[in-house]
Structure formats: C-alpha cells, structure tokens
C-alpha cells in the first residue's frame, strides 16, 4: 500500500519536473549513449538548440553579475560558473564524440545521412562535406592522380568488396533496460537464444540486438 502511494506521488512530482532538469537528463543520456555506442545516433536537434540558448543566456547573466562586482554575490558566481563549465563539458564531449565517428566513417555516414536526414545536424553535414572535399583534393594532388584512372576512386565497390568502411554493428555494449522491451535474439556458439529485456536489467549484448530499443528510449547504454 505504501509503495502504491509513494509511486503515485512520484509520478505526480516527476510530471512537474522543470524543463531545465528534463533537458539535463536528456542531454546526459544523449552523451552517455553517444560515448558508448559504436554507431552515430540521431542528432537531438531541438534539445541541443534549447540547451545552447540557455547556455548563452547564462553566460550573459554571469557577465552582468561580474560587472556589478557585488562581494556578496561572489560565491553565487563561483557556483554558476562551475555549473556552466559542467554543462559546456557535456555538450562539447557529446559533439566531439560524434565528430570522431563521422571522421572514422565519412563515406558511410554521407550515404546514410541522405536516407536519414535526422542523423546529422546541419553543421555536421557541412563539416562532413567540406572535410571530405579537402581530403580527397589532397589525396588527388599528392598521389591519386598518378594512379591509373580506374584505381582512383575512394569509395569503390567493384569486385564484391566495398572500400567504404562501416562501424562494427555487432560490437558488444553494456546496456540498461529502462522499460520492458520484449525479446531480442542472442547468437551464441551453438544456438540462437532469445532473452527478455526487463526493466532494471543490465546486459552485455551486441549493439545490433539493442539498437532499435535504444532509438526508442527503451534501453540506454552505460
């Protein structure tokens, strides 16, 4: 009985959680997921926009406070700045983790982004295009141009083997189930097993097995 009441109370209080806190939770999850997954995840455009907007306002606020130089506000300022740096770290690390993935598999993500526009942000798109253009121009001028014409391609798929590197979708990941998410297949040495994803469980699974559940928010990586 007690449990029921506290659950109801919890559900009420969580629905009144301020938007800022929800955004911090979402950003934290986005960061952890991106840092631990072998593949690029969709870019949370509106979330990052909101966070960036708030960061900008907070920086202005801190600058205003520094100008007034109220000795009492000094400690408040220290707290605000500390939090600002923590937030900036989250955003920066998140974006850098994405860029690292884009840099490793540029051709793969370029084709993928054409089918799934939500995968990359506009800036990431631009970065990918211009970085690739620079690289291939450099390769051409330094050595590719001396090759026979039919060997000059960087994304050749002839002969049954693709030159385009892809992330390893079967890599093992640690994940936590947030919501009952049905069953997934596990391929072991001799047999294919099915396991059930139950709320609260921690699993080591192949990324390909939980990828869809992570996109839905049923499972998070840890």
């Amino acid at each position: 009985m007690d449990d029921d009441i506290s659950d109801i109370l919890a559900s009420i209080s969580s629905s009144t959680t301020p938007h800022q806190t929800l955004d911090l939770q979402a950003l934290t999850r986005a960061w952890v997921n991106e840092r631990t997954s072998p593949e690029l995840l969709p870019y949370p455009t509106s979330l990052i926009d909101r966070v960036m907007e708030r960061l900008k306002k907070q920086i202005e606020k801190i600058e205003d406070m520094t100008d007034t130089l109220d000795p009492k506000a000094n400690f408040t300022l220290v707290i605000l700045q500390t939090e600002l740096e923590r937030f900036k770290f989250l955003v920066r690390s998140f974006l850098r983790a994405r860029i690292a993935k884009i840099d490793t598999y540029p051709y793969h993500y370029r084709t993928l982004a054409q089918q799934q526009p939500e995968l990359l942000s506009n800036l990431e798109q631009q970065y990918l295009q211009s970085h690739q253009a620079l690289l291939s121009a450099h390769y051409h001028s330094s050595f590719l141009s001396t090759f026979p014409a039919n060997l000059q391609k960087l994304d050749d798929t002839a002969g049954g083997i693709s030159m385009v590197d892809k992330p390893d979708e079967d890599q093992a990941v640690f994940c936590r189930v947030l919501r009952d998410a049905g069953r997934v297949e596990v391929q072991n040495a001799d047999a294919t097993e099915e396991i059930e994803l139950r709320r609260g469980d921690v699993w080591v699974l192949r990324w390909s097995a939980v990828k869809r559940a992570v996109h839905r928010g049923d499972v998070e990586l840890i």
Partner: peptide
C-alpha cells in the same frame, strides 16, 4: 525502481523525447 513513468513510446517519437524519457542513475 519506481514504476515506469511512461508506456512504450510512439514509433514516430523523436529520439530522447521528454515524454519517453525514463529516469535512470544518476
């Protein structure tokens, strides 16, 4: 664990939508 705050999200919900966010540590 507390009761889950949400049921399964809709298929068209964007990644990390607020309604579909289930709390976890920290």
């Amino acid at each position: 664990l507390p009761q889950p705050t949400s049921t399964a999200p809709l298929e068209e919900d964007p990644y990390l939508a607020h309604d579909a966010l289930e709390l976890s540590p920290p």
